[in-house]
Simulated scan of single mutants.
Amino acid sequence: MSTSPPANPGAEHSTWRLGDLTVRRVGFGAMRLTGTEPFDRGLPRDRDRSIAVLRRAVELGVDHIDTAAYYFSSTRSANELINRALAPYPEDLVISTKVWPGRDPSGAWWWATPEQLRGQVEENLRQLGRDHLDLVNLRVPPRQRNGSIAEHFGALAELRDAGLIRHLGVSHVTSEQLTEARAIAPVVCVQNPYGIGAPSEDRALLRRCGELGIAFVPFFAIAGPGREAGPAAEDGEAVRAVAHAHGVSVAQVRLAWTLRQGPHVLAIPGTGDPDHLEQNMAAGALRLSEEEIARLTSPGPDEA
């Protein structure tokens, strides 16, 4: 099967709205631009190669890039690579970022207080060379998984009112936290881990977002349990069989399955490899049958 992107990017269900911003459903995640493994655990990416990947992504139709100021290694910063590659930015390009987590210059992690969120927003503005951010997701820490996010989300809402942020989203949240955030300010997207084999509560939140007209933006859709380390070494038999039947990679099958979960579901696969970029973009044109979707959605015990 060809790995060319869809000839008609305006095809049915190929776009969704983030507030008043329309984006194509296959975007790009910037985390892997900085190194062979994120967060300085591997070799740094070649700078020119990463810049070329970003420019090629836009050429292929990407108009939604997901990033964060804490995506950096000892020698590379995702935000600065985006700035170098794409500024002055195309008018239709939407750049989303995340705050609450942070990393100091040594790479050590820290979590912002509500009062420190403005500094994190301004850091993204400086690195990206912008006067406002299109979309900021409040990335909830694991320890706060069942706690209130009202203070932090309220602080972001104030920055939105001040004109530093255009739209707000939430990341790694529960359904209850989404309700809490929506009572404070409009939420245009939920960015949570999601992929084949997702538990029932995650599936329920995805459906709820669709009912509310909120974009659901899964991360680790390709990596699955491998998370930041990348795709797991072994994929279930069903995924491999479907990939073989279509003559595509398992990553493409995982992305195509993700996009079939609803017209409000966006994908932000990340890569620093030009060939993988082409394959990821082609996944938007991969059509899986209802039987294949059902098989992938209900894996056997050996594939769970």
Rank of each mutant, 00 (worst) to 15 (best):
V53A: 05
L54T: 05
A57L: 10
E59H: 01
G61M: 09
V62N: 13
D63N: 15
T67F: 05
A68H: 08
Y70E: 10
Y71L: 02
F72Q: 05
R76E: 14
S77Q: 11
A78T: 03
E80P: 01
L81F: 08
L81N: 02
I82E: 06
R84L: 11
L86M: 03
P88T: 07
P88V: 08
P88G: 09
P88H: 05
P88F: 03
Y89S: 12
P90T: 10
P90K: 06
E91N: 06
E91G: 01
D92N: 15
L93K: 07
V94Y: 12
I95K: 06
I95V: 15
T97M: 01
K98G: 01
K98Y: 08
W100K: 07
W100A: 09
W100N: 06
R103M: 13
R103L: 12
P105F: 02
P105A: 11
S106M: 03
S106T: 14
G107H: 03
A108C: 02
A108N: 12
W109H: 14
W109I: 15
W110S: 14
W110Y: 14
W111F: 15
W111L: 08
W111P: 00
E115C: 01
E115V: 11
E115Q: 15
Q116A: 14
R118K: 15
G119H: 08
G119N: 12
Q120F: 13
V121Y: 10
E122K: 09
R126Q: 10
L128M: 08
H132Y: 07
H132G: 11
L133P: 00
D134G: 00
L135K: 11
V136W: 09
N137I: 00
R139D: 05
R139C: 11
V140H: 04
P141N: 06
P142F: 08
R143T: 08
Q144S: 13
Q144Y: 13
R145Y: 02
G147H: 11
G147L: 10
G147A: 15
S148W: 05
I149K: 01
I149F: 03
I149V: 12
I149N: 02
I149R: 02
E151G: 09
H152Q: 09
G154D: 02
A155P: 10
A155L: 05
L156N: 04
L156A: 02
A157W: 06
E158S: 13
L159Q: 02
R160L: 06
D161S: 13
D161K: 14
G163W: 02
L164V: 07
H167G: 00
L168A: 10
L168R: 11
G169E: 09
G169T: 03
V170S: 00
